[in-house]
């Protein structure tokens, strides 16, 4: 947990809320896979970096979390997608 969140005004969070809302509506109306994947990643980044204050955490913690999530996702995709498509 960081000693300082780095965000000093409520306004920053409500701007984040507006961006999340726009991304959500955009994803629903678009339906295109690249937009959906991009939208999910963008929303996840806003939540983790801004709301969970990950951008103000120690660099080692940030890399541990990001690397863990990236490796897990890569393993899941490599294991499940080709096998699933082959069945």
């Amino acid at each position: 947990m960081s000693s300082q969140s780095g965000v000093s005004s409520y306004r920053t969070y409500w701007i984040g809320w507006l961006v999340l809302l726009i991304l959500t509506v955009g994803m629903v109306f678009s339906g295109a896979k690249p937009v959906l994947v991009g939208g999910m990643l963008a929303k996840a980044s806003i939540i983790t970096l801004l709301y969970m204050h990950l951008m103000h955490e120690r660099r080692r913690l940030v890399w541990t979390i990001l690397l863990g999530i990236f490796l897990t996702s890569a393993v899941l995709v490599v294991l499940s997608v080709p096998d699933g498509m082959a069945m």
Partner: peptide, 29 residues
């Protein structure tokens, strides 16, 4: 400590969504 819990919990949900992706791709219908 909370981060550790959240990462393990994230792995649980990642497993669920990975299983869902597999099931969907492997579905013959």
């Amino acid at each position: 400590m909370m981060w550790l819990f959240l990462v393990t919990d994230a792995l649980l949900f990642a497993g669920f969504l990975g299983g869902y992706a597999f099931c969907r791709l492997a579905s013959d219908k």
